[in-house]
Design a binder for these strands. Structure first.
Lengths: 207, 207, 207, 207
DNA sequence: GATGAATGAGCGTTCATTCAT
DNA sequence: TATGAATGAACGCTCATTCAT
């Protein structure tokens, strides 16, 4: 029987940021593809090309890894929405842009927006649940619209939740089927949102 | 032989239907509360007051248990929607009724509608995924509305997905906060759905 | 939900002996086909057309069932050997008959003789292990042969064990392949046994 | 989340080869003593002084562990037989050596040769069943003997099976009782094999 | 006597986490 | 700092056995 081989020297140290990035990419891909519970730390580490133990240099545990992914993802969405909403133009034009931005980001990330609703355990450090910040941004946009008279007033939380669901439904659908085209899907989403929250009364506009 | 140890006596037999019901109640509650992956068969059995092995008299395995719960739940929603949509009256009145029915059922079942979107693994025996039948019913209602001229034509799959998301968002929100009142929440949902899918063009009604 | 149905009347009582026989047939077939550990009491009961609980009327537990099967099987083999060995004729003729009898019985029972060596747990009520009685019978025949001068004297236990192994090897082989014909296989076994244990010295007969 | 409880620290790392060896020793001992089905992975791990999970570092599953044990064991026997058969001298001398080698190895390994016939489920990677390679080696030796005129021609498969059974019977017997002495038992086995398969006819040598 | 639903200890296996190297 | 072998609690599931009916 052979004696224990001398330990191989550790791999040449790479840039920690590149490791973190590889880790994020691997994690987001695996979580998205097969779901949090079906992904093992070993699988993530392998996919990222690092050792299992190294994962724990970056994240305290598996849940923290998911939390971080979701937080980053949500941050991106929110920033995108803010940027698009801050462009010049009327409410309807800016809403179109926001919707297009959502689809763009989803296409880039190839990520289910609703990964956010797939776990019951994540709470962000500020106490928010996944999706809450997106919803808050929707609410904020809605309130802008109400202030300008474009949208009718309503229960902001409920309206936010509905709008959030609308977005999620549209994006997931498109992600699964790719139909209609990205731009068309974005415009249909935008259109339904506009109709859904505009000022006129149902009895004024009914058939 | 290790496995041949004497086994303890069985408990006094209860009505088998009460066991199945207790099992369903326990399962749906635990799945809803802490999520499928965090629920152990042992926990379900304990909550239901039966033995672990007994669970397997009723369901082949854990996933089949979830599948059955989801299938029953979705069936109830679809039947409710069909019944409400078949009542007399105009599209808008019937849509109100459908929305109220959705909230009623959710209130009775105290169940997250979106338990349906919480697992990637369930496929019903007819090949449908959880939520598909609800979405199909929404599509069917939408097509009725298009035929009667009440709704404008659009991509039925996408519209169905958006409407589904809208409903899910509204119901989940209400379930978490209880606000606004059940009836009010239902009417706001209905209102947004009607606005969102009505015939008029955005440029006719815009601000 | 339905209330518990009234218990169906028990099946018309069958002759207990027919149940016992069905149980034996089912057990021996399943044990032989897929091995003791892979057979469940439920499977035996189903195959025998009786209820699980009824198995325990006849046998105290699963191991006792196996023990009983092995004991009956071994008894049959021993009785067959005794009968064949008691026929008129010289040692070599009677040995032929014994071997043919072994193959006949195996063919009838379609049973692996070596089921006997497949468990470590069975001990017969007289303290014997499975196979011991067959080996004892072989030893007895061998001693007859030694007394008559046909076989040379040797360690009876060791010779018995070797002869037993020889038989088992031959029978298992034939059971698996069916070749050569049953009669031919029996005669070859007999021939090897005769050669193996006859009086002459190796140096007298060597090449 | 239930599964994310803190884990206790690892024990001080030992030489991995010593773990594998301890695992092999523990497994072979327990399998031999109480039979494959009665041995739990936990028991093997405990006996080997390692954790349950560590077993799975070395073997994919329990059956693979058994398979590996059997394959290694059989390989040793076959190599021993080949080596002894390749020594100089006549058939009878070399057969003596082979038999002595079999007993030597068994004494060293303290292992039931017939562990090989104790499970129905193992199939080696080359498609062979346990025992097949030993039998093939016996057949090969037998054919050598036939070619040289020392053994009479016969059905090689059947003769191989019988010889295999003979060996198994002799070795098992000796292992259980230790009588007669190792050397004596080997010579008696060899003697019976020689008699059993030598060229002379029964009617030439009968009493 | 016969039934089969109920029981729960025990199994094989997984994998998040730790820490000696 | 990086590694990955080691850990063991926890899981889903099985099935010999019991006993109310």
């Amino acid at each position: 029987m052979k004696k224990a081989e001398p330990r191989p020297a550790q791999k040449r140290t790479r840039d920690p940021d590149s490791k973190r990035a590889a880790l994020q990419t691997a994690a987001i891909r695996l979580f998205t593809d097969i779901g949090y519970e079906n992904v093992s730390i070993a699988a993530i580490a392998k996919e990222a090309g690092i050792a299992v133990g190294t994962v724990y240099r970056f994240y305290e545990n598996k849940l923290a890894l998911l939390q971080s992914m979701l937080e980053a993802l949500e941050y991106e969405y929110v920033e995108q929405m803010k940027a698009d909403w801050a462009t010049p133009g009327g409410v309807d034009v800016r809403l179109d842009r926001v919707c297009e931005g959502l689809f763009d980001l989803t296409a880039q990330r190839n990520t289910l927006l609703n990964l956010m609703s797939m776990t019951t355990d994540v709470v962000f450090d500020d106490g928010a649940l996944p999706g809450d910040h997106i919803q808050a941004q929707i609410v904020s946009m809605y309130q802008d619209g109400v202030r300008s008279g474009a949208f009718r007033a309503g229960d902001v939380d409920l309206y936010g939740a509905m709008a959030h669901g609308l977005v999620e439904g549209a994006v997931m659908r498109w992600l699964r089927t790719g139909k209609p085209s990205q731009r068309e899907a974005a415009l249909q989403l935008s259109s339904v949102m506009k109709y859904g929250f505009l000022s006129r009364q149902i009895n004024e506009t009914g058939p």
